[in-house]
Write a protein that binds this DNA or RNA. Structure first.
Lengths: 144, 144
DNA sequence: TTAATAAAAGATATAAAACTCTTTTATTTA
DNA sequence: TAAATAAAAGAGTTTTATATCTTTTATTAA
Protein backbone atom coordinates (compact mmCIF):
# COMPACT_ATOMS: atom_id res chain seq x y z
CA UNK A 1 0.00 0.00 0.00
CA UNK A 2 2.72 2.46 1.06
CA UNK A 3 6.40 2.54 0.12
CA UNK A 4 8.80 1.41 2.83
CA UNK A 5 9.97 5.02 3.10
CA UNK A 6 6.40 6.05 3.81
CA UNK A 7 5.89 3.31 6.39
CA UNK A 8 8.99 4.52 8.26
CA UNK A 9 7.77 8.11 7.94
CA UNK A 10 4.39 7.40 9.50
CA UNK A 11 5.90 5.32 12.25
CA UNK A 12 8.45 8.05 13.02
CA UNK A 13 5.89 10.83 12.99
CA UNK A 14 3.64 8.99 15.43
CA UNK A 15 6.66 8.10 17.57
CA UNK A 16 7.87 11.69 17.78
CA UNK A 17 4.35 12.94 18.43
CA UNK A 18 4.19 10.49 21.29
CA UNK A 19 7.66 11.19 22.73
CA UNK A 20 7.62 14.97 22.37
CA UNK A 21 4.26 15.49 24.04
CA UNK A 22 5.85 17.17 27.05
CA UNK A 23 7.91 19.55 24.94
CA UNK A 24 10.93 17.26 24.70
CA UNK A 25 12.89 16.94 21.52
CA UNK A 26 13.62 13.44 20.25
CA UNK A 27 17.02 12.52 18.80
CA UNK A 28 17.38 10.58 15.59
CA UNK A 29 19.01 7.63 17.34
CA UNK A 30 16.12 7.29 19.73
CA UNK A 31 13.68 7.53 16.84
CA UNK A 32 15.50 4.89 14.79
CA UNK A 33 15.51 2.54 17.75
CA UNK A 34 11.94 3.36 18.70
CA UNK A 35 10.55 2.46 15.31
CA UNK A 36 13.14 -0.13 14.32
CA UNK A 37 14.47 1.60 11.20
CA UNK A 38 17.91 2.40 9.73
CA UNK A 39 19.16 5.54 11.42
CA UNK A 40 20.47 7.51 8.44
CA UNK A 41 17.56 6.49 6.33
CA UNK A 42 14.89 7.78 8.67
CA UNK A 43 17.02 10.89 9.23
CA UNK A 44 16.76 11.69 5.53
CA UNK A 45 13.05 11.15 5.55
CA UNK A 46 12.48 13.40 8.55
CA UNK A 47 14.73 16.09 7.11
CA UNK A 48 12.54 16.03 4.02
CA UNK A 49 9.36 16.22 6.07
CA UNK A 50 10.99 19.01 8.09
CA UNK A 51 11.65 21.09 4.98
CA UNK A 52 8.05 20.59 3.97
CA UNK A 53 6.89 21.85 7.35
CA UNK A 54 5.33 18.66 8.70
CA UNK A 55 7.73 18.35 11.62
CA UNK A 56 10.12 20.67 13.45
CA UNK A 57 13.76 20.12 14.42
CA UNK A 58 16.68 21.79 16.11
CA UNK A 59 20.41 21.06 15.90
CA UNK A 60 22.92 20.84 18.71
CA UNK A 61 22.82 19.50 22.26
CA UNK A 62 19.29 18.84 23.41
CA UNK A 63 18.34 19.13 19.78
CA UNK A 64 16.13 16.71 17.94
CA UNK A 65 12.74 16.46 16.33
CA UNK A 66 9.51 17.76 17.82
CA UNK A 67 6.12 19.13 16.91
CA UNK A 68 4.60 22.54 17.13
CA UNK A 69 0.98 22.06 18.07
CA UNK A 70 -0.35 22.98 14.62
CA UNK A 71 1.80 20.27 13.06
CA UNK A 72 0.22 17.66 15.30
CA UNK A 73 -3.02 18.32 13.52
CA UNK A 74 -1.65 17.02 10.24
CA UNK A 75 -3.17 13.77 9.03
CA UNK A 76 -1.61 10.49 7.97
CA UNK A 77 -2.90 11.37 4.50
CA UNK A 78 -0.71 14.49 4.57
CA UNK A 79 2.36 12.39 5.34
CA UNK A 80 1.50 9.85 2.65
CA UNK A 81 1.00 12.57 0.06
CA UNK A 82 4.29 14.24 1.04
CA UNK A 83 6.25 11.00 0.62
CA UNK A 84 4.42 8.83 -1.92
CA UNK A 85 2.36 11.44 -3.72
CA UNK A 86 -1.37 11.13 -4.30
CA UNK A 87 -1.40 8.17 -6.68
CA UNK A 88 -2.97 6.03 -3.97
CA UNK A 89 -5.85 8.47 -3.61
CA UNK A 90 -6.42 9.43 -7.21
CA UNK A 91 -4.50 7.03 -9.48
CA UNK A 92 -5.94 4.25 -11.63
CA UNK A 93 -5.88 0.85 -9.95
CA UNK A 94 -4.52 -0.70 -13.14
CA UNK A 95 -1.90 2.00 -13.65
CA UNK A 96 -3.50 3.74 -16.64
CA UNK A 97 -2.44 7.35 -17.02
CA UNK A 98 -5.90 8.52 -17.74
CA UNK A 99 -8.81 6.83 -16.05
CA UNK A 100 -12.05 8.50 -15.11
CA UNK A 101 -15.81 8.12 -15.35
CA UNK A 102 -15.45 9.53 -18.86
CA UNK A 103 -13.02 6.78 -19.89
CA UNK A 104 -12.98 4.17 -17.14
CA UNK A 105 -10.76 1.11 -16.85
CA UNK A 106 -12.63 -2.16 -16.32
CA UNK A 107 -12.44 -1.95 -12.54
CA UNK A 108 -12.73 1.82 -12.25
CA UNK A 109 -15.90 2.08 -10.18
CA UNK A 110 -15.00 -0.69 -7.77
CA UNK A 111 -11.66 1.01 -7.24
CA UNK A 112 -12.98 4.48 -6.83
CA UNK A 113 -14.98 3.32 -3.84
CA UNK A 114 -11.92 1.79 -2.24
CA UNK A 115 -9.72 4.80 -2.92
CA UNK A 116 -12.31 7.17 -1.49
CA UNK A 117 -12.60 4.94 1.52
CA UNK A 118 -8.83 4.97 2.07
CA UNK A 119 -8.56 8.72 1.57
CA UNK A 120 -11.39 9.37 3.96
CA UNK A 121 -9.88 7.20 6.64
CA UNK A 122 -6.39 8.69 6.29
CA UNK A 123 -7.68 12.27 6.12
CA UNK A 124 -9.44 11.81 9.42
CA UNK A 125 -6.47 10.14 11.10
CA UNK A 126 -4.58 13.01 12.77
CA UNK A 127 -1.13 12.42 14.21
CA UNK A 128 -2.23 13.62 17.65
CA UNK A 129 -4.80 10.90 18.09
CA UNK A 130 -2.30 8.01 18.08
CA UNK A 131 -0.13 9.10 20.99
CA UNK A 132 -2.41 7.91 23.81
CA UNK A 133 -2.42 4.32 22.58
CA UNK A 134 1.36 4.25 22.75
CA UNK A 135 1.45 5.94 26.16
CA UNK A 136 -1.00 3.42 27.57
CA UNK A 137 0.75 0.46 25.93
CA UNK A 138 -2.33 -0.42 23.94
CA UNK A 139 -0.50 -0.04 20.62
CA UNK A 140 3.08 -0.70 19.52
CA UNK A 141 5.65 0.48 16.99
CA UNK A 142 8.29 -2.24 17.25
CA UNK A 143 8.43 -5.99 17.71
CA UNK A 144 11.06 -6.21 20.39
CA UNK B 1 -1.54 -0.36 -4.40
CA UNK B 2 -0.30 -3.04 -6.83
CA UNK B 3 3.17 -3.50 -8.31
CA UNK B 4 3.54 -2.56 -11.97
CA UNK B 5 3.93 -6.26 -12.74
CA UNK B 6 0.58 -6.89 -11.10
CA UNK B 7 -1.11 -4.03 -12.94
CA UNK B 8 0.07 -5.48 -16.25
CA UNK B 9 -1.06 -8.93 -15.13
CA UNK B 10 -4.60 -7.84 -14.34
CA UNK B 11 -4.86 -5.84 -17.53
CA UNK B 12 -3.60 -8.80 -19.57
CA UNK B 13 -5.89 -11.31 -17.90
CA UNK B 14 -8.94 -9.16 -18.53
CA UNK B 15 -7.77 -8.51 -22.11
CA UNK B 16 -7.30 -12.20 -22.88
CA UNK B 17 -10.60 -13.06 -21.21
CA UNK B 18 -12.21 -10.53 -23.48
CA UNK B 19 -10.44 -11.53 -26.71
CA UNK B 20 -10.63 -15.29 -26.26
CA UNK B 21 -14.35 -15.40 -25.53
CA UNK B 22 -15.09 -17.12 -28.82
CA UNK B 23 -12.43 -19.78 -28.33
CA UNK B 24 -9.68 -17.81 -30.05
CA UNK B 25 -6.14 -17.81 -28.71
CA UNK B 26 -4.48 -14.45 -28.27
CA UNK B 27 -0.83 -13.90 -29.22
CA UNK B 28 1.61 -12.14 -26.94
CA UNK B 29 2.13 -9.30 -29.44
CA UNK B 30 -1.57 -8.60 -29.59
CA UNK B 31 -1.74 -8.68 -25.81
CA UNK B 32 1.20 -6.31 -25.38
CA UNK B 33 -0.37 -3.88 -27.83
CA UNK B 34 -3.83 -4.30 -26.37
CA UNK B 35 -2.79 -3.39 -22.86
CA UNK B 36 0.13 -1.10 -23.75
CA UNK B 37 2.89 -3.06 -22.01
CA UNK B 38 6.43 -4.25 -22.89
CA UNK B 39 6.05 -7.45 -24.90
CA UNK B 40 8.71 -9.64 -23.27
CA UNK B 41 7.79 -8.42 -19.85
CA UNK B 42 4.11 -9.33 -20.05
CA UNK B 43 5.17 -12.62 -21.66
CA UNK B 44 7.13 -13.52 -18.54
CA UNK B 45 4.24 -12.59 -16.32
CA UNK B 46 1.74 -14.66 -18.27
CA UNK B 47 4.12 -17.64 -18.39
CA UNK B 48 4.28 -17.44 -14.63
CA UNK B 49 0.51 -17.24 -14.31
CA UNK B 50 0.28 -20.10 -16.79
CA UNK B 51 2.48 -22.35 -14.65
CA UNK B 52 0.31 -21.51 -11.68
CA UNK B 53 -2.78 -22.53 -13.61
CA UNK B 54 -4.50 -19.16 -13.89
CA UNK B 55 -4.35 -18.98 -17.67
CA UNK B 56 -3.82 -21.48 -20.49
CA UNK B 57 -1.47 -21.27 -23.47
CA UNK B 58 -0.36 -23.17 -26.52
CA UNK B 59 2.77 -22.84 -28.65
CA UNK B 60 3.08 -22.79 -32.40
CA UNK B 61 1.00 -21.32 -35.22
CA UNK B 62 -2.43 -20.29 -34.01
CA UNK B 63 -1.01 -20.60 -30.54
CA UNK B 64 -1.40 -18.02 -27.82
CA UNK B 65 -3.09 -17.48 -24.52
CA UNK B 66 -6.65 -18.39 -23.70
CA UNK B 67 -8.93 -19.45 -20.86
CA UNK B 68 -10.59 -22.68 -19.99
CA UNK B 69 -13.96 -21.80 -18.55
CA UNK B 70 -13.00 -22.68 -14.97
CA UNK B 71 -10.09 -20.27 -15.13
CA UNK B 72 -12.42 -17.45 -16.04
CA UNK B 73 -13.97 -17.81 -12.64
CA UNK B 74 -10.77 -16.77 -10.93
CA UNK B 75 -10.90 -13.44 -9.16
CA UNK B 76 -8.70 -10.36 -9.38
CA UNK B 77 -7.70 -11.22 -5.80
CA UNK B 78 -6.31 -14.54 -7.08
CA UNK B 79 -4.17 -12.74 -9.63
CA UNK B 80 -2.96 -10.20 -7.07
CA UNK B 81 -2.04 -12.95 -4.61
CA UNK B 82 -0.22 -14.91 -7.32
CA UNK B 83 1.89 -11.89 -8.31
CA UNK B 84 2.23 -9.63 -5.26
CA UNK B 85 1.44 -12.09 -2.48
CA UNK B 86 -1.12 -11.43 0.23
CA UNK B 87 0.60 -8.56 2.02
CA UNK B 88 -2.07 -6.18 0.76
CA UNK B 89 -4.80 -8.31 2.29
CA UNK B 90 -3.16 -9.33 5.54
CA UNK B 91 -0.01 -7.22 6.07
CA UNK B 92 0.44 -4.39 8.54
CA UNK B 93 -0.19 -0.93 7.07
CA UNK B 94 2.99 0.35 8.72
CA UNK B 95 5.09 -2.64 7.63
CA UNK B 96 5.48 -4.32 11.03
CA UNK B 97 6.14 -8.01 10.78
CA UNK B 98 3.74 -8.87 13.51
CA UNK B 99 0.60 -6.83 13.88
CA UNK B 100 -2.69 -8.12 15.17
CA UNK B 101 -5.45 -7.37 17.62
CA UNK B 102 -3.19 -8.97 20.24
CA UNK B 103 -0.37 -6.50 19.48
CA UNK B 104 -1.74 -3.81 17.19
CA UNK B 105 0.14 -0.99 15.52
CA UNK B 106 -1.34 2.46 16.13
CA UNK B 107 -3.50 2.39 13.03
CA UNK B 108 -4.28 -1.32 13.09
CA UNK B 109 -8.06 -1.18 13.39
CA UNK B 110 -8.53 1.57 10.86
CA UNK B 111 -6.41 -0.44 8.45
CA UNK B 112 -8.06 -3.73 9.05
CA UNK B 113 -11.33 -2.26 7.87
CA UNK B 114 -9.75 -1.02 4.67
CA UNK B 115 -7.91 -4.26 3.98
CA UNK B 116 -11.05 -6.31 4.50
CA UNK B 117 -12.88 -3.96 2.22
CA UNK B 118 -10.25 -4.35 -0.51
CA UNK B 119 -10.12 -8.11 -0.15
CA UNK B 120 -13.87 -8.40 -0.30
CA UNK B 121 -14.09 -6.31 -3.43
CA UNK B 122 -11.27 -8.15 -5.22
CA UNK B 123 -12.54 -11.59 -4.16
CA UNK B 124 -15.87 -10.83 -5.73
CA UNK B 125 -14.40 -9.43 -8.93
CA UNK B 126 -14.21 -12.41 -11.29
CA UNK B 127 -12.31 -12.13 -14.56
CA UNK B 128 -15.37 -13.09 -16.57
CA UNK B 129 -17.38 -10.11 -15.46
CA UNK B 130 -15.13 -7.50 -17.06
CA UNK B 131 -15.30 -8.69 -20.65
CA UNK B 132 -18.68 -7.20 -21.55
CA UNK B 133 -17.59 -3.67 -20.70
CA UNK B 134 -14.71 -3.98 -23.15
CA UNK B 135 -16.89 -5.55 -25.83
CA UNK B 136 -19.43 -2.76 -25.57
CA UNK B 137 -16.74 -0.05 -25.43
CA UNK B 138 -17.88 1.08 -22.01
CA UNK B 139 -14.45 0.40 -20.47
CA UNK B 140 -10.89 0.66 -21.81
CA UNK B 141 -7.44 -0.85 -21.31
CA UNK B 142 -5.25 1.61 -23.21
CA UNK B 143 -5.06 5.33 -23.77
CA UNK B 144 -4.59 5.39 -27.53
C1' DT C 1 9.26 -34.08 -42.62
C1' DT C 2 10.54 -29.44 -43.21
C1' DA C 3 9.64 -24.52 -42.64
C1' DA C 4 7.17 -21.27 -40.15
C1' DT C 5 5.14 -19.78 -36.00
C1' DA C 6 4.66 -18.59 -31.29
C1' DA C 7 5.39 -19.47 -26.44
C1' DA C 8 9.13 -20.82 -22.90
C1' DA C 9 13.35 -20.13 -20.92
C1' DG C 10 17.71 -18.02 -19.87
C1' DA C 11 20.69 -14.30 -19.54
C1' DT C 12 21.50 -9.52 -19.31
C1' DA C 13 20.60 -4.47 -18.80
C1' DT C 14 18.48 -0.35 -16.71
C1' DA C 15 16.12 2.25 -13.28
C1' DA C 16 14.26 3.02 -8.92
C1' DA C 17 14.04 2.17 -4.06
C1' DA C 18 16.30 1.21 0.03
C1' DC C 19 20.16 1.79 2.76
C1' DT C 20 25.09 3.42 4.36
C1' DC C 21 28.99 6.34 5.09
C1' DT C 22 31.35 10.80 5.51
C1' DT C 23 31.55 15.67 5.97
C1' DT C 24 29.42 20.03 7.20
C1' DT C 25 26.63 23.27 9.86
C1' DA C 26 24.02 24.94 13.75
C1' DT C 27 23.48 25.05 18.69
C1' DT C 28 24.60 24.53 23.42
C1' DT C 29 27.25 24.45 27.52
C1' DA C 30 31.30 24.55 30.12
C1' DT D 1 35.42 30.80 22.80
C1' DA D 2 36.37 25.92 22.54
C1' DA D 3 34.56 21.32 22.83
C1' DA D 4 30.67 18.50 22.42
C1' DT D 5 26.38 17.45 20.43
C1' DA D 6 23.04 16.50 16.98
C1' DA D 7 20.77 17.52 12.66
C1' DA D 8 21.73 18.64 7.54
C1' DA D 9 23.77 17.62 3.41
C1' DG D 10 26.32 15.12 -0.03
C1' DA D 11 27.97 11.11 -2.14
C1' DG D 12 28.03 6.34 -2.64
C1' DT D 13 26.46 1.32 -2.37
C1' DT D 14 23.23 -2.47 -2.45
C1' DT D 15 19.06 -4.51 -3.56
C1' DT D 16 14.83 -5.04 -5.91
C1' DA D 17 11.73 -4.03 -9.67
C1' DT D 18 11.26 -3.27 -14.31
C1' DA D 19 12.54 -4.10 -18.96
C1' DT D 20 15.15 -6.12 -23.01
C1' DC D 21 17.57 -9.43 -25.89
C1' DT D 22 18.69 -14.13 -27.42
C1' DT D 23 18.11 -18.98 -27.71
C1' DT D 24 15.26 -23.03 -27.25
C1' DT D 25 11.12 -25.88 -27.51
C1' DA D 26 6.48 -27.16 -28.93
C1' DT D 27 3.02 -27.05 -32.51
C1' DT D 28 1.09 -26.51 -36.99
C1' DA D 29 0.56 -26.65 -41.80
C1' DA D 30 2.34 -27.10 -46.30
Amino acid sequence: MFSKTCEYAIRAMIFVAHKSKNGNRVGIKEIAKGIDSPEHFIAKILQDLGKKGFIQSMKGPNGGFYFESESLNHSIADVVTAIDGDKLFYGCGLGLKECSAAKPCPIHYEFKEIRDNIKNMLDNAKLAQFTDGLTNHLTFLTRK
